[in-house]
Simulated assay, not measured.
Amino acid sequence: MTDSRAAIDVAYANASHIPGGMEYPARWAEAAAAFRERHPPEEIAYGAGARQRLDLFRPEGEAKGAVIFVHGGFWRAFDKSSWSHLAEGALAHGWAVAMPSYTLAPEARIAAMTREIEAAIGAVAEAVPGPLRLAGHSAGGHLVARMACADLSPPWRDRVARIVPISPLSDLRPLMGATMNDDLRLDREEAEAESPLLCEQVDLPMTVWVGAAERPAFIDQARWLAERRGCELVEAPGRHHFDVIEELAEPDSPLTETLLG
């Protein structure tokens, strides 16, 4: 491994810099499974692919609209079933919550994932009337931020009330030099086209969220996007890359209030 590749890998590494970092995926899966036992979701296919499925959690009574949460994992890991518990905050306020899976690298490239999330949100828009609120974490933060780029023109976009990219990757160009790019296969053209930082912007309400205790590279990525959008940047005190999303499970947390407010 070259020194430059090693440096980029370290800059974007999370688990090794978080106490007990390797334990988080099992904890997420356990909490998500317990939540699904209490609140069984409706599964909706938004395409023909094996991973083109989403879980839709409906509140009691008529939904105020729909929240769509797109998971992270550097576009290479996880699926909708790992995050179900994060629906609890918005559900408590009467919002439906959708969590899509999407085809991961190396099977799919990031440009294809962008189109899958666009289609997934379209399926949610058909299933739930009312406003749409988009949130995503890390790679998912990238994907929801892409929904505010002018090269996309989904018919549901005028229903988007807010987008909250959480610890988003907004400029993909640095990742071309990382080991993960063996799977992502980013070249210069795709890295530029798929970077929310570089795209022509659409005027949609956005708040960028990041943990104040995250790796400097993620704080930089969040700050760049907020500056490009001219929108609020929230640095959540004491939060790192793995626990920054936990507030979504809390009905009265600042993150839930920002997403729904």
Rank of each mutant, 00 (worst) to 15 (best):
T179Y: 00
R58T: 05
M113Q: 14
A87E: 10
M206T: 14
V67C: 11
E192L: 14
R173Q: 10
G72H: 08
G61P: 11
D182W: 01
F57S: 04
P25V: 02
H240C: 01
R109T: 12
W75H: 05
A13Y: 07
D182F: 01
E235N: 05
A249Q: 12
R159W: 04
M22F: 14
T207F: 07
K64P: 15
W224Q: 14
F242A: 08
F218R: 02
W28D: 15
L198Q: 12
L186M: 06
G72T: 11
A191N: 04
L198N: 07
A92Q: 15
K80E: 01
A120D: 08
E200S: 13
M113V: 12
E257T: 15
I163M: 11
V144L: 00
T256V: 08
W28I: 04
S138D: 09
I68R: 00
N14E: 12
A191R: 00
E37T: 14
L169D: 09
A139R: 00
P19E: 01
I44K: 00
M22K: 07
A139S: 09
P216C: 14
P19T: 04
E235Q: 15
A226E: 09
P196H: 04
L134C: 07
R53V: 15
T179L: 00
G47P: 02
H93C: 09
V202E: 12
D182I: 02
M22E: 13
Q201M: 12
K80V: 02
D158Q: 12
P251L: 15
C231H: 03
P254Y: 06
L225R: 02
Y24T: 13
D55P: 04
E62L: 06
C231Y: 07
Y24A: 08
R215I: 05
L143Y: 03
G72W: 03
I166Q: 06
A33I: 05
W75V: 06
F69H: 15
N14C: 11
S253K: 05
E88L: 14
P131H: 12
A13N: 07
E107N: 07
V128P: 05
W156A: 03
L152K: 01
Q201N: 08
N181Q: 00
